[in-house]
Amino acid sequence: MGLLAKSDAAQLAGLIGRLENLPEFEWLRRPEVGGVMVRGRMGGTGAPFNLGEMTVTRCALRLESGEVGHGYVQGRDKRQAEQAALMDALMQGPRAAELQETVLAPLEAAQTDVRETRAAKAAATKVDFFTMVRGED
């Protein structure tokens, strides 16, 4: 669900477009945009405090076959929340392996790539200290 929550909406829609015969579903909770209060820790390690909110869209649905899926995505994209919930429900059924391969693995690869590219650029800005010989001896 974390992968889906952080996914790029366009990429998710593209990947889901490759799936055939997506099942019908009924809404348990239609997509709604809301705020989640993000908390930090005092001093990074202490007791919590309220930092500020972030936008989140959530929904819940039930497939004809009975599985219930929950969608939570960062931002305000209702379509993305619906697709996340659909994936969550389908992952509980017989198509889990297909979804893992077609949708989740590419999402994970894309997120890893973004993370590693940033980490590589950050690593290039790491300071290598060296000491000048001062010639006092």
Binding site: E32, V33, G34, G35, V36, M37, V38, R39, G40, R41, G44, T45, P48, N50, L51, E53, M54, T55, V56, R58, R115, R118, A119, K121, A122
Partner: peptide, 18 residues
């Protein structure tokens, strides 16, 4: 915005630092 809830305190010690 309706308040959906609150997060767990974020763990800055494991931040992916830029």
């Amino acid at each position: 915005l309706p308040r959906i809830g609150h997060s767990r305190p974020v763990e800055t010690g494991v931040m992916a630092c830029d």
